[in-house]
Amino acid sequence: MNANDLIPDRYHGVWQRTLLQTPATHDTTTWVRWLQTGLWHGDLRVPPEADRTTPAGRAEQQGFGGTTLITHPDAGQPEVCTWQRQIDLQPPRSTPDAGHMVFEAPDCVHETGIHGQYFEVWERLPGSLGTRIALAALDATGAPTAERLLVAGRYLMHLRPRSAAWPAGTAPDDSLAEVVARHPQRAEDLLDFDISFGTLEHGVWTIERASVPALEGRVDSVTVQRKDQHTAWVGSARLPQRWQVLEWHAVDAPD
């Protein structure tokens, strides 16, 4: 990773969405966390009204991960943040996920949609600055996979994508709920996508929210150790052990 690839420090940390405004929606209750390292992001969104005991309810969640790009348009225009999604709980989009960003304060940023009509307010969580780590799980051959482990300050997010391919006929901008409704026999495979978020303190990971509801409230022992320039080991009962280092800025790193 080249230092020029890193996004500005002002974006680092974990951001909580406190408002979504669209022509049809005023939402202050959906649970949303965006974790941002120097380059990598993870995002999880859980609607409060979703009945997550059912496949249809779980399909209403959103979550994704990938790299983040900051660009500067013409003079006088707000800078643009683009979330380049490499994995996504929902089907592919037809337009980029990008917004104009205006920092109203160091810990508050306003996002206005470019390819959609929306306005969002994001507030940075205390304790989410300092350590920034991004890891990619390694498979049995030592090749990196799409599975990610991200750390920002005292927060950890794990992202494991589904292994199933989208069914034939899935079109850009279909919702996962629509795909599951068309292919109910494949619901579990399509929903087998784990994004888990919580705090990592003194080697204890407490999961606050997860796309798999049964994981919420779980407390696991997790240690993250860098072995060399390119590899790290994770000690955990349910996470892979060997990881590729994508980014490692260890200030008060997890013990």
Rank of each mutant, 00 (worst) to 15 (best):
V32Y: 04
V32M: 04
Q84E: 10
A136E: 15
F64S: 13
Y155P: 01
D74G: 12
L215R: 03
Q21S: 14
Q229R: 14
W40N: 12
V245Y: 05
D174W: 06
F193P: 00
A164V: 13
V80K: 00
G169M: 07
R58Q: 13
G66I: 03
E79T: 07
S211E: 07
V234A: 14
E188L: 10
H12A: 11
L156V: 12
R186Q: 15
S221R: 15
W83M: 08
T199P: 09
P144H: 04
D107H: 13
Q16M: 09
P23E: 15
D97V: 09
I133N: 11
R124T: 10
I7Y: 11
A177V: 06
G130R: 11
G153E: 01
V80S: 00
A253W: 10
D173K: 01
T68K: 01
G203T: 03
M157E: 12
L190M: 06
P73L: 04
W248G: 00
D74Q: 11
G169Y: 06
R154W: 10
M157D: 05
P240E: 00
G116T: 07
P161Q: 07
H202D: 07
H72E: 14
S211A: 13
L215S: 02
V180I: 15
L190C: 08
A3W: 14
G99N: 04
Q36W: 08
T29G: 07
R124Q: 05
A250W: 04
P91R: 02
Q229C: 14
L89G: 03
W40Y: 15
M157P: 14
P92T: 08
S236K: 06
P92K: 01
A59T: 01
L150K: 07
G65M: 02
D228A: 03
E123K: 15
M101P: 02
L191K: 06
L129M: 13
Q117E: 15
P126C: 08
V102D: 05
A143N: 08
T206K: 11
G42M: 07
A232C: 08
H183K: 00
G99T: 00
G235V: 07
R52K: 11
E201G: 09
V46M: 04
Q62D: 12
E201H: 14
E123T: 15
W40H: 13
Y155K: 07
S196G: 13
T231Q: 12
A171I: 02
L149T: 09
N4S: 15
A50L: 05
G217I: 14
V224Q: 07
R186I: 13
A137V: 08
P172T: 02
P240D: 03
C81I: 05
G203V: 02
V204I: 03
V109R: 00
P78E: 00
H72D: 08
L191W: 05
V245C: 05
I114H: 00
A168R: 12
R226W: 10
G99W: 00
T223E: 09
R209Y: 09
P23A: 13
Y11K: 02
D173N: 10
A250D: 12
R148C: 09
R160W: 02
D194Q: 13
P106M: 09
I207C: 15
T199M: 04
A98V: 00
Y155Q: 02
H158R: 11
N4K: 15
